Amino acid sequence: MNFRNFITIFILFSLFSCGDQKKEDVAALLKIWSGKEILFPTNPVFTVQDKDTIDFSMSGKYKILTYVDSIGCISCKLQLEKWKTFMEEVDSLGMNSVKFLFFFSPEKRRDLLITLKSERFTYPICIDKENRLNELNHFPVSDMNFHTFLLDKDDKVLAIGNPIHNPKVKELYLKIIQGEVVEQKDESKVIRTKVDIGKTSVSLGNFDWEKEQKSAFVLKNTGNKPLVVEYVNTSCGCTSVDYSKEPVQPGKEMILNVTYKAEHPEYFDKTITVYCNVETSPIVLKITGNAE
């Protein structure tokens, strides 16, 4: 492995939260996938909302590939509204050489089509009914971080991770695409503080699925430096978070106001990921309940 690839892996490793996996496992996966060529099915069919087959070229100086399997909540995994925002940002920077490749392999095709229509997602997609993309590449089942890649023109992996779920991955993707020098930040120079969280999980109990539910998490700055929240990500579009963007001074509190609106009756288990300047960042919070 050359020095450049080693640095790339080191940077990528710093972007992943390893709460549920051993760091050694993540490092091993990064070493395997960095620089690897992604194989695509022969003549994949692209459509817009599964209506008309279109002539869609996958060629481009850079490609952002995201693969979504049939396991779990489709709308939670897709996060289409955030993808639209990211794509608009890329276009605004004049990056016409970037192709977005969406490969969906849903178990329930109808659920996917409903989501595409309700969120007015009109970018070309490939509905991979036979899951051929995964069969060719064998993506890790246990880690969705390894289902989204930044590829070069030869389909080789330049970076790994979902820019929609992780702002640091997004920053890395944009730097590579714009030709900027990618360097590992000196984490020792980051001003950090400490937080105390009264509770990291909230149960909303049983409720009418058509009624919006609200809850809150309190983060108290127990360190001696200002607490700065860089970004808050939710695992589903049905969950939103409102909070003050101002730094929280030592001894003061920040309130994260969470709103949950069920799309249909279900038992749910949603996460809220808070990226901030503390050693334990990102902080993962959870809401659960039964929308009847």
Score class of each variant (00 low, 15 high):
residue 72 G to A: 11
residue 219 L to W: 00
residue 111 D to M: 12
residue 30 L to F: 07
residue 161 G to Y: 03
residue 120 R to P: 01
residue 37 E to L: 02
residue 109 R to G: 03
residue 235 S to I: 02
residue 171 E to T: 15
residue 186 D to N: 15
residue 162 N to Y: 04
residue 7 I to H: 08
residue 254 M to T: 02
residue 89 E to M: 10
residue 72 G to P: 05
residue 208 D to L: 05
residue 57 S to I: 04
residue 7 I to C: 09
residue 31 K to R: 13
residue 195 V to S: 01
residue 268 F to T: 04
residue 5 N to M: 12
residue 15 L to C: 14
residue 278 V to H: 00
residue 106 P to K: 13
residue 257 N to L: 10
residue 283 I to D: 02
residue 63 K to A: 12
residue 147 H to F: 12
residue 55 D to H: 10
residue 128 D to I: 03
residue 120 R to I: 08
residue 219 L to M: 12
residue 83 W to G: 00
residue 226 P to N: 07
residue 251 G to P: 06
residue 55 D to M: 07
residue 200 T to G: 06
residue 270 K to R: 15
residue 161 G to S: 09
residue 254 M to C: 03
residue 178 Q to W: 01
residue 189 K to R: 15
residue 95 M to P: 00
residue 78 L to S: 08
residue 152 D to E: 07
residue 235 S to G: 15
residue 152 D to L: 03
residue 56 F to C: 06
residue 7 I to S: 10
residue 209 W to G: 03
residue 143 D to H: 11
residue 18 C to G: 06
residue 274 V to N: 03
residue 35 G to L: 05
residue 267 Y to R: 12
residue 149 F to M: 10
residue 244 S to D: 15
residue 202 V to M: 07
residue 43 N to Y: 06
residue 200 T to C: 06
residue 77 K to R: 15
residue 64 I to E: 07
residue 25 D to R: 09
residue 229 V to A: 00
residue 215 S to D: 13
residue 267 Y to M: 10
residue 228 V to A: 05
residue 137 N to H: 07
residue 92 S to P: 01
residue 119 E to Q: 13
residue 81 E to H: 08
residue 149 F to R: 08
residue 32 I to A: 05
residue 70 S to N: 15
residue 229 V to C: 01
residue 198 G to E: 14
residue 143 D to K: 11
residue 18 C to E: 10
residue 284 V to L: 11
residue 40 F to Y: 15
residue 80 L to E: 06
residue 47 T to F: 08
residue 121 F to H: 07
residue 91 D to H: 06
residue 290 N to T: 09
residue 165 H to Y: 13
residue 151 L to D: 05
residue 214 K to I: 02
residue 284 V to K: 15
residue 59 S to Y: 13
residue 116 L to R: 06
residue 21 Q to L: 09
residue 279 E to I: 11
residue 26 V to G: 02
residue 212 E to D: 04
residue 3 F to A: 11
residue 41 P to H: 10
residue 59 S to F: 12
residue 22 K to T: 13
residue 260 Y to L: 09
residue 135 E to Y: 04
residue 11 I to Y: 00
residue 76 C to D: 14
residue 226 P to H: 03
residue 203 S to C: 11
residue 168 K to G: 04
residue 93 L to P: 02
residue 44 P to W: 13
residue 157 V to W: 03
residue 6 F to D: 11
residue 211 K to M: 11
residue 61 K to G: 14
residue 275 Y to W: 14
residue 13 F to V: 01
residue 133 L to Y: 01
residue 70 S to Y: 10
residue 287 I to P: 04
residue 153 K to F: 08
residue 157 V to H: 02
residue 252 K to R: 13
residue 237 G to H: 02
residue 47 T to S: 14
residue 279 E to V: 12
residue 82 K to Q: 15
residue 81 E to R: 13
residue 110 R to K: 14
residue 60 G to L: 13
residue 99 K to S: 07
residue 236 C to A: 14
residue 253 E to D: 10
residue 13 F to C: 04
residue 234 T to V: 13
